[in-house]
Amino acid sequence: MPATPDLRKSYDVVIIGAGGHGLATAHALATTWGVRRIAVLDKGYLGGGNTARNTAIVRANYLTPEGVTFYKESMSLFETLSQELDFNIMYTRKPHLTLAHTDASVRTMRWRAEVNKHLGVASELIDEAKVAAIEPCLNMSRDVRYPILGALHHPVGGTARHDAVAWGYAIRGAQAGVEIHQLTEVTGLRVEGTRVRAVETTRGTIEAGQVVQAVAGASSLMARHAGLRLALRTVPLQACVSQPLKPVINSIIVSGSLHCYIWQSQRGELVMGGAVDPYPLWSTRSTLDFKEGLMAHMLELFPFLAEVRMMRQWAGMADMTPDFAPIMGKTPLDNYYIDAGWGTWGFKATPVCGKRMAECVATDTQPDILKPFRHDRFTHFDQVGEAGAASVGS
């Protein structure tokens, strides 16, 4: 990356947050729309927030037409992202299995499969025999609390190296003129009428033509500086990895009933996670309670893991909306744009978010694909209801 120059007094676009979404938006603004005076600000370091704390899963098997359409485009962009950035993001195809343990969840998986197929996304409901054939190590016994009755099979799921995605966008963006200012905390926004005139930071005040907020778990706090109230609740989301093992799990396996998921990385680690913590908190600490609960569920699915040791545990801050869908695009302020509400599924949206948020900023219009996720949908009771976002449906 080229050296970062001194902070200027003004920029055409200021992006708050140097995570995957902020960097992808900056990259698209510079390379697609020809915007040259762009500053990306972060109170920490490049890609050090939720981008560095997720579990790198990519999929498009959502529940609503709006969600499926959005993530279908994101997956198509992931397929060629290494070539576009000339940087290996280690994108790997992996089948995705969302397990069904009850008759109700079987009906929901059938519903999701039909929505997916209608919109051109490979997805189907499979029975127990096919689940066992794809994942021989799964415990298919009926003598457990939640027996496996079938699964939603998404053969085109995948994973990507999360920090490599951030680095790739940062390097190519910086080469196109984007300035990435780390350790530069935004402390306030200077609002005059219906416009944000300047961004106040720990390194001085910057005048801005347009401002994009992409700060994940801190979204509601940052929006307050702009005088906006977001329909968000921030809760910790924890994950962990085991010691490396020889290849044993072929797919990404998710259980909504057990609130857990698992896949095996290229290094052999078992990457595991579960539901968000049940209380709001702006913290990235790990807890014993999460670890104990998750391991109980994992051993129901894979009893042979009983002697495997956990190697590393961490947490991120998930910004959850009432309808489990993001908040994207224009706001009541003329030149302030929001990218928030990603909860547990923000990483897999990185390429499409950068592409479409850049379009929104450059044209000052809400792209059609982002209209369902507009800021004011909660006041108009026009919610999306993307329960498939957390790999469950109701």
Rank of each mutant, 00 (worst) to 15 (best):
I180K: 07
T32K: 11
D289T: 12
A306H: 13
L125H: 09
G158Q: 04
T201I: 07
D382N: 15
E300N: 07
K9R: 14
I38G: 01
T184M: 05
A30C: 00
H21C: 03
R233N: 04
V241R: 04
G19M: 00
Q366L: 15
V308Y: 00
H380Q: 14
D376V: 10
A214Y: 01
R195T: 03
A325R: 01
D368K: 13
E73A: 10
D12H: 05
W263A: 05
S220V: 05
A100G: 14
L46K: 03
I38L: 09
T187M: 04
G388R: 10
Y45T: 14
P351T: 04
S255D: 06
A226H: 01
A216Y: 12
A216M: 08
I252H: 02
M328Y: 03
A166P: 01
V68S: 03
S219P: 05
L183K: 13
R142A: 09
D143L: 10
V106R: 03
R377K: 07
G17Q: 02
G48E: 04
G47T: 04
L125E: 08
D143P: 12
F87P: 00
W111E: 14
F378Y: 12
P303A: 04
L23V: 00
A60V: 06
H27D: 01
M317D: 03
N139Y: 01
V68W: 03
D277G: 06
A176I: 00
D334L: 13
S10L: 09
G173I: 01
I89V: 13
T102G: 09
A18P: 06
D376P: 06
C260P: 08
M75Y: 10
A390M: 15
D289E: 15
Y11W: 10
E292R: 15
Q266S: 15
L258Y: 02
R107M: 13
A390N: 15
R312S: 11
W167G: 00
G188E: 04
G268R: 02
F290E: 00
L29T: 01
P303E: 11
A56P: 07
N335G: 01
G204I: 07
K117W: 11
I126G: 11
A387M: 15
T64I: 04
Q264E: 12
H153R: 09
L152S: 07
L288N: 06
R229D: 14
A239T: 04
G67N: 07
T159Y: 04
P280K: 06
H27T: 01
R233M: 08
L221S: 06
F304C: 11
P303H: 02
L232K: 03
A214Q: 02
T69M: 13
A239I: 00
D376H: 11
A133N: 12
H153L: 15
R267S: 13
A56M: 13
L7I: 09
R107A: 14
L333H: 05
R229H: 09
V361T: 07
D6S: 11
A226T: 01
G47D: 03
L152W: 02
V14Y: 06
N61R: 08
S286P: 12
P5T: 03
I327E: 07
T194W: 12
K355R: 12
Q210M: 10
G49S: 04
G173M: 02
E114Q: 15
G274K: 02
I327T: 10
G293A: 08
